[in-house]
């Protein structure tokens, strides 16, 4: 059993929900990212998502795209992010998940990517532009328990597709809170609880909700019907604009979830 499964098992036993912050690796530098990840762990994060910078992040809004541009500018790429995980592992016990687009993985070589990521201590991977229908090559190398493959369910996903996505997902399932991109404005009047219970009838795997979650109130509302809440753009924005306020914000989120 890998760290992600252990984390959700432990949280379920304690009737708690996972707090999953996202940071863009290398924004503004890998050293700073390491510091931030260790701070997040101390502040009670359960899993951290590390964004891998890519020139054309289709599923992301401007906050993450700009962070990716800064990281690319400082020379960060997939290989270096894997290196960062390796470098952090002695000090960091929580699960680390990479969020990357498919082309950097494809270019790296899927087999080599999985081997190096696992070897460095990466626990899972989220690839928003890789639907399970196209993930045959990745799934061939990521045996369950080795590297979790976390696929995304959208509000428009049909039952048939949800089954397929849930079947291919390991670690947890990423439920996208709305039709849209990361960092967009969330509308809480949505049918989220209903959609999540429909999802839960199909699968027993943990479900984390993300996209557009920014305030502790929103995080709390999301955590009521999910196993975890993912917060990305709001953290990335704060890290860039007012890093001194990050600690307090993280604590507020932790209390809310």
């Amino acid at each position: 059993m890998n760290r992600i499964d252990r984390t959700f098992r432990k949280l379920r036993a304690q009737n708690k929900k996972a707090f999953i912050p996202y940071v863009m690796a290398g924004d503004p530098s890998l050293e700073k990212t390491k510091e931030t990840v260790l701070l997040l762990e101390r502040s009670g994060a359960d899993i951290v998502e590390l964004g891998v910078p890519f020139t054309d992040p289709l599923a992301d809004g401007p906050t993450i795209q700009r962070a990716a541009e800064r990281a690319l500018h400082s020379g960060v790429n997939l290989r270096k992010v894997i290196g960062l995980v390796r470098d952090m592992r002695p000090d960091c016990q929580m699960p680390l998940v990479l969020m990357t687009y498919y082309n950097p993985v494809f270019r790296y070589g899927v087999e080599g990517f999985v081997r190096d990521a696992v070897d460095a201590g990466v626990d899972g991977v989220i690839i928003p532009d890789l639907p399970p229908e196209e993930a045959g090559e990745l799934l061939r190398f990521t045996k369950p328990g080795r590297l979790a493959t976390i696929f995304l369910v959208a509000p428009t996903s049909t039952e048939e597709r949800i089954k397929k996505i849930a079947g291919a997902s390991t670690g947890f399932i990423y439920y996208v809170s709305m039709t849209g991109i990361t960092g967009a404005k969330l509308s809480l009047d949505s049918s989220l609880p209903e959609s999540l219970s429909a999802l839960r009838r199909i699968t027993k795997k943990p479900v984390a909700v993300g996209f557009g979650v920014s305030t502790p109130e929103e995080a709390k509302a999301m955590s009521e019907s999910a196993d975890g809440v993912i917060i990305g753009s709001a953290i990335v924005k704060r890290l860039h604009e007012s890093p001194e306020s990050l600690g307090e914000y993280i604590s507020a989120l932790r209390r809310a979830i």
Binding site: F54, D56, N103, P104, R107, D129
Partner: peptide, 19 residues
């Protein structure tokens, strides 16, 4: 060869797969 905007095709990309 690469994968971009939903298509597997020929791309102008760097060593790390950035466009």
């Amino acid at each position: 060869l690469g994968v971009f905007q939903g298509t597997k095709t020929y791309l102008l990309q760097d060593e790390a797969g950035n466009i």
